[in-house]
């Protein structure tokens, strides 16, 4: 089948959204089903057919969703009702909409930092961030205490710290800040923040 000429193709738009919590591993197909379900339950089959949502890229914690031009608003509202993907709680934070995928890719792809030449005699730069592959992510501490319990740090970015309780009984993720951890490590602070 030959491809249609550009004038006969339907116009499309692409929406870039960040997946939260950070570091959540999702399959593209599962995310498509979650978005399709959210769109269908909110707008119905007829409108979803007009929107034609499709997940076209899922990389670096971001997702690019395709829709028909003019239906971005409806898709954005439907995306705000996505709460889970295969029983994993997620949230999609819309960042931008564009007419091309490439312009959106440039927004979330990590920029390559040019390597600086090391001067002879000086020590080569050691890797400062072995745990975080992305730029801006601080080195991850192994564990911390919070509410008199020991937690493992899953993700740490700036002030934000995501932790999960050690052990197998309670695997709920907690969203804290560095200040919370510092306060709770002190002996005088009560369980409640």
């Amino acid at each position: 089948m030959s491809t249609r000429p550009p004038t006969l193709r339907e116009k499309r738009r692409y929406i870039l959204a960040r997946i939260e919590p950070a570091g959540t591993q999702l399959e593209q197909k599962d995310l498509y089903y979650a978005i399709s379900d959210a769109t269908t339950t909110l707008w119905g089959d007829a409108t979803t057919a007009i929107i034609t949502p499709a997940v076209v890229a899922l990389e670096h914690g971001h997702v690019v969703i395709r829709c028909r031009r003019g239906t971005e608003r409806e898709l954005a509202i439907a995306l705000s009702t996505v709460t889970a993907c295969r029983d994993v709680r997620i949230c999609l934070r819309i960042i931008a909409a564009s007419g091309t995928i490439e312009s959106l890719r440039s927004r979330f792809r990590p920029k390559k930092i040019p390597k600086t030449k090391t001067q002879p005699g000086s020590e080569p730069e050691t890797e400062k961030n072995p745990a975080g592959a992305d730029a801006g992510i601080e080195p991850v501490q192994p564990a911390c205490t919070f509410a008199k319990k020991t937690f493992q740090i899953l993700h740490c970015n700036g002030q934000k710290v995501d932790v999960i309780e050690k052990g197998f009984k309670n695997t709920n993720r907690l969203f804290l800040t560095k200040d919370d951890l510092e306060n709770l490590n002190a002996t005088t602070i009560s369980d409640r923040i």
Binding site: A147, Q159, K160, N172, R173, L174, F175, L176, T177, D179, D180, D191, R192, I193
Partner: peptide, 16 residues
């Protein structure tokens, strides 16, 4: 609803 009613501290909710 911050911790302990929810799963995020009030500071984190404020940041968000």
């Amino acid at each position: 609803y911050p911790f302990p009613l929810g799963d995020a501290s009030v500071r984190r909710l404020a940041l968000e």
